[in-house]
């Protein structure tokens, strides 16, 4: 478990980090919590030549009330998201989902921005923020831009971020008292979800995000449409996989994933409505 040789530089601000990543080019990688990147490096699946450590950019660790939304600094650790009273009040679904990421060790080191930028469809927070209609803020050499979560995920571990851009903030709309549920199904507590469902519902309006049901996190729009049309939870859940394209793996066949998505979506909608 020895990674290939790499250089290490530490950035003290977002601007410096962006400057450094631009300087070193394509072979450089941001290092935040390191809980996805470092294991991949140890297995030599990832061999960046330079790591730009942004772990000490402390001004990107915050959770602020932004009026209609909550703004979360990209370097906020999962544990801080999980324990945040502000999120507990305004976006409880996200706080709860953050408590399901990995294990306590991962949650104390891993960051929300790192998790989202890594764009692993099996991770909990991409689908959760997608369901919540979040907007991500990216900073690059030419300034900042906003990217809707729905536009951010492009494929396995592939996001809309340019190589010299850095995710700096996540803006999550307040849930306004909507019911919610996070259904994570896995074999061991610390594992990635085999299938996960993040859902909120307010009357006939809902958002449903699916974990590990395609090469990207999936917004189950068909379910939302069915709910808007007055379908029961059970009937709406039948459409759970309509927007998905799941793959089979050691834990689940395609058929089983589709089945699980329906069962978990139904359970999530029932819980969110109650």
């Amino acid at each position: 478990m020895i990674p290939a040789a790499f250089d290490y530089v530490r950035a003290s601000s977002a601007a410096e980090a962006i400057q450094l990543i631009g300087q070193y080019g394509d072979e450089a990688k941001f290092l935040a919590g390191g809980h996805s990147l470092v294991p991949a490096m140890k297995l030599r699946l990832a061999q960046p030549t330079v790591l730009v450590d942004i772990g000490r950019v402390s001004d990107l660790s915050y959770i602020r009330d932004g009026g209609d939304h909550i703004a979360i600094g990209a370097l906020t650790r999962h544990m801080d998201v999980e324990k945040s009273p502000v999120l507990a009040e305004h976006v409880p679904l996200l706080a709860h989902a953050a408590g399901h990421v990995g294990d306590p060790q991962v949650r104390h080191r891993g960051t929300i921005g790192g998790s989202l930028a890594h764009a692993d469809p099996a991770s909990d927070l991409p689908a959760t923020t997608l369901a919540l209609g979040a907007t991500y803020v990216a900073e690059g050499p030419n300034g900042t831009r906003e990217i809707a979560a729905a536009d951010f995920y492009q494929g396995y571990f592939t996001s809309a971020l340019a190589p010299d851009e850095m995710l700096t903030e996540i803006r999550v709309p307040k849930m306004g008292g909507a019911g919610w549920s996070f259904q994570k199904f896995n074999r061991r507590a610390q594992d990635w979800a085999i299938v996960g469902v993040a859902a909120w519902q307010r009357g006939s309006e809902c958002g449903v995000g699916l974990v590990n049901m395609a090469s990207t996190p999936v917004l189950a729009s068909s379910v939302a449409t069915a709910v808007a049309g007055g379908a029961s939870a059970a009937d709406a859940a039948e459409a759970a996989a309509a927007d998905a394209d799941p793959q089979g793996d050691l834990n689940a066949s395609v058929e089983y994933r589709v089945h699980l998505a329906k069962v978990l979506t139904r359970r999530a909608l029932e819980a969110a409505a109650s």
């Binding site: 297995l43 294990d103 074999r187 061991r188 507590a189 610390q190 594992d191 050691l250």
Partner: peptide
Amino acid sequence: LQTSTLAEYLVPAASD
């Protein structure tokens, strides 16, 4: 071998 790491080879933990 498809279960070449402990991410795929599922040794249960205390919580399981």
